[in-house]
């Protein structure tokens, strides 16, 4: 388990210490529009001081009460030192540093258990959207939407990036449905409850909007012009694309089959069983005796598929039993209104 070293701006009114205890700062809770901007510092952060200054300015101009919480992986000492200088100068900045590398979801989870304002903004440590649009996302949350996901539009980047984005969302729509066009943008404004209540782990944070929607929150996508600093072409190593496809498969199963795993494994298993039985039937009908070479290959393939199908169904049944056992511990619905 990673420990968290905290450095606070005393002006923000929070205590100093090394614990990871969850609390909500009463001063923040009193102000329903207090904003905590969470910046996970990992992967490919840009220099943090200019990033902070650029995104804090429009919030200040809009008269918002806010703080920036930087949650840093090990390293980044120079950046952290600069942030601490800003904090010393009275800027509403907090810095948390974890003791080892974590994934994005764990970084956010670490912050979420700390004191946060009623409105939370997630902001990658690199520029995605024009800073001027940040207050608009927040205003939409204050008007009643649970989560607003920024969609980088109009796009200003290369066709390679756009093609990749379109491909991802084509696959998303094809598998899990939904109307997102830039779900992985990373810039999101939400009520604190959304961050605390949406089950998210590992790399699934990039699909946070979908997961929040699944949890029954009202989610909207809102256009925000893409930042010029985000326009460079991005081509990754092949292993990353494979990882993304695996993430997609994972999110497909999580969103559609969490409470009914056999509906995923069952059709796969039954299909394999039927194909296997079909091959075995072929041996009988076509007279491919086990003595002939072709007959043996078909026999082996038939049995192999049959066995694989049975295994898939068995895994599905295990999943169903686990869901059944866990059902009492989980409330799987969200009531948004009760009258009388």
């Amino acid at each position: 388990m990673a420990t968290v070293r905290k450095t606070f701006n005393p002006a923000a009114g929070t205590a100093q210490g090394m614990s990871g205890a969850a609390s909500i700062n009463p001063a923040m809770a009193d102000d329903p529009s207090f904003i905590s901007v969470l910046v996970p510092v990992w992967e490919r952060p840009e220099p943090l001081r200019p990033l902070y200054e650029e995104y804090a300015a429009p919030l200040r101009q809009a008269g918002k009460r806010f703080e920036f919480v930087f949650i840093c992986e090990p390293g980044y000492q120079a950046d952290i030192a600069e942030l601490l200088n800003l904090a010393q100068a009275g800027e509403p900045i907090r810095v948390l540093q974890v003791s080892r590398n974590l994934d994005e979801a764990s970084l956010y989870h670490t912050v979420a258990t700390d004191s946060l304002g009623p409105v939370v903004v997630t902001l990658p440590a690199y520029r995605r959207i024009e800073a001027d649009y940040l207050p608009r996302l927040i205003d939409r949350v204050l008007q009643g939407t649970d989560l607003v996901v920024a969609r980088r539009w109009p796009r200003r980047d290369s066709w390679i990036n756009r093609w990749q984005n379109r491909s991802l969302h084509f696959l998303l729509r094809w598998t899990v449905g939904g109307k997102f066009r830039d779900v992985a943008c990373g810039v999101q404004a939400m009520r604190r409850e959304v961050l605390l209540s949406t089950p998210v782990y590992g790399d699934s944070f990039r699909f946070f909007g979908l997961l929040a929607q699944q949890s029954g929150f009202r989610v909207e996508e809102m256009d925000a012009p893409q930042h010029l600093g985000d326009r460079r072409a991005r081509l990754y190593r092949p292993s990353l694309y494979i990882r993304r496809l695996v993430d997609l498969l994972g999110i497909y199963v999580i969103l559609r089959f969490t409470t009914r795993p056999l509906r995923f494994f069952g059709p796969i298993g039954v299909s394999l069983i039927l194909i296997g039985l079909g091959l075995l039937l072929l041996i009988l009908i076509r007279g491919l005796g086990p003595v002939s070479g072709t007959g043996r290959v078909v026999l082996l393939a038939g049995v192999f598929l049959l066995v694989l199908g049975i295994q898939a169904v068995a895994i599905g049944i295990i999943g169903e039993m686990m869901v059944f056992l866990q059902a009492p511990a989980r409330t799987r619905y969200r009531v948004v209104e009760r009258v009388n």
């Binding site: 929607q213 699944q214 949890s215 029954g216 929150f217 009202r218 799987r332 619905y333 969200r334 009531v335 948004v336 209104e337 009760r338 009258v339 009388n340």
Partner: peptide, 25 residues
Amino acid sequence: LTAGDHRITLIRLGRNYGQATALQA
């Protein structure tokens, strides 16, 4: 309807969860 009859309660769910979950609620 709830305004005129306090015996009637509206429970509105966040999305369409399906009949089993609605019954459970």
